[in-house]
Computed example of a mutant assay.
Amino acid sequence: MAASSTPRFTKSHSNVVLENGAEDEEYEKLSHESKELLLSLPREKGWGHPYFYSYQDIWYSPGLIQAIISFQNHFQSKESDIIITSLPKSGTTWLKALTFAIVNRNRFSPSQQNHPLLTSNVHDLVPFFEVNYYGNNQIPNLSNLPEPRLFGTHVPFNSLPDSIMKSKCKIIYICRNPFDHFVSFWIFINKVIPSSMPKLSREEAFERYSNGVTEFGPFWIHMLRYWRGSKVMPNKVMFLTYEDLKGDINFFLKRMAEFLGIPFNSDEESNGVIESIIELCSFEKMKELEVNKNGKFLQKYENKHFFRKGEVGDWVNHFSPWMEEKLSKVIEDKLGGSGLSF
C-alpha cells in the first residue's frame, strides 16, 4: 500500500498549522520528539482524526503514537498481570467484563446486587494502557495497583513492551469476523467523531478499511500477529473470536479460567457460578445498566455507544454485493493459508 508523502507543516509563532491551514489540536499537544518523529512517518487521511501515521507497520493518530512509545519505554510488567487485547469494536467490552468477573469471583460474587460491573463501565474497571494510563504525556506509577492487575489494550502483539513479552503475564486476545467488525467500527466512529470532522460514508470507510487504513489497522496484521503469538506461546497468549464466545460461551469461559490458572471447581459449577457470570456480563444486561446508558468514558465517549447490537452476521444488512466480494478477496489474500478463518 502506497502511503502519501510526508506531511508538510508551516510554523506560525508557537502554533503548528497543517498544510490546509487548519490547526491540528492533537498535534499541538505532542512533545517535540513526537513531532519530529511524525515528520518521518508515512501518512494517510484518517477517520475520526485528520491523519493517521504508520508506526511499526500500524496506523495511528498522532497522540496514540506518543502514548504507545511511552507505554513501551516505561511499563513494567508483573508475573500476575492479565492483559485483554483486541482491535477496537471486536468484543473488547464483553471480554473485559468476563475476565473481570472470573478473576474477582471470590471477591465479588457474580450474583451480588452491588457487583462493580453493575455500577461501573467496564473500561473504567479494566483501563486501557494507551488512553487511560499513558495518554496526554502521562507516566503513571502502576506498581501499587492490587494484583492481579487487569489491563486493556489495542496495541498489536509486536509493539507490546519487552517487559510484557519477557514476563509470565497472561494475554487474552479477541477478534471478530472482518465483515461484522467493519460495520461495528464504522458506525461507532461516526457516532463519536468530533463535530469538526466529516462523517465517512459507508463506501468511503469501506475503501479505507479494505486498504488497511484504520486506527490500529490493517486488521489482518493485528489479527495474524496475535494468532501466531498464540501458536508459539500457547501458555501466554489465548486467542478467541467473538463468534467463538457467542457460539459456546460456557465452554470458552471455562477455558479462560483454566488459562488464567484459576479454573472453576466442581462446587462452583454445580452452584451455577458460570451461569451467573454469563448473565452478569450479557450484552442485554450491560446495555440496560444506568451507567452504560448515561455515563461517559474518559469524559469524552458516551458509554451507550459501546453497546449497539452485539450480534453475529449483522453485516448482511449493510453490505452490497461488490463490498462482500471485495472484502472476501482481501481476507483470502491476507489470511489465506494462516489457519485463521471465520
Rank of each mutant, 00 (worst) to 15 (best):
S31G: 14
Y60A: 10
H74V: 07
N106L: 11
I82F: 04
L41G: 05
W59D: 13
G63N: 15
I82D: 12
P146R: 11
I83R: 06
P148S: 07
E147D: 14
W59P: 10
Q66S: 15
G135V: 01
V155A: 04
Q113K: 15
S143Q: 15
N144Q: 14
T99Y: 01
L142Q: 12
W94A: 04
L150W: 02
T93G: 01
R149S: 08
I82N: 03
D81N: 11
S111P: 00
I69T: 07
S90E: 06
L64I: 02
S90L: 02
E79N: 14
E33Q: 10
R105G: 10
S70I: 07
Q138T: 14
N104H: 15
E33W: 08
P156H: 09
Q66L: 04
L41Q: 10
V131C: 05
S143Y: 10
W47R: 10
L118F: 00
P146D: 12
N137Y: 04
L142W: 13
I84C: 12
G48C: 09
P140S: 07
G63T: 08
F71Q: 13
D81G: 08
K89A: 13
Y134E: 08
L117Y: 02
K35M: 12
N73F: 03
H154P: 06
F100Q: 09
Q66H: 14
I102Q: 11
Y53S: 05
S34A: 14
E44Y: 06
V122Y: 00
Q138M: 11
L87W: 04
F71S: 06
N137F: 07
S109K: 08
G135Q: 09
L87S: 14
N114H: 11
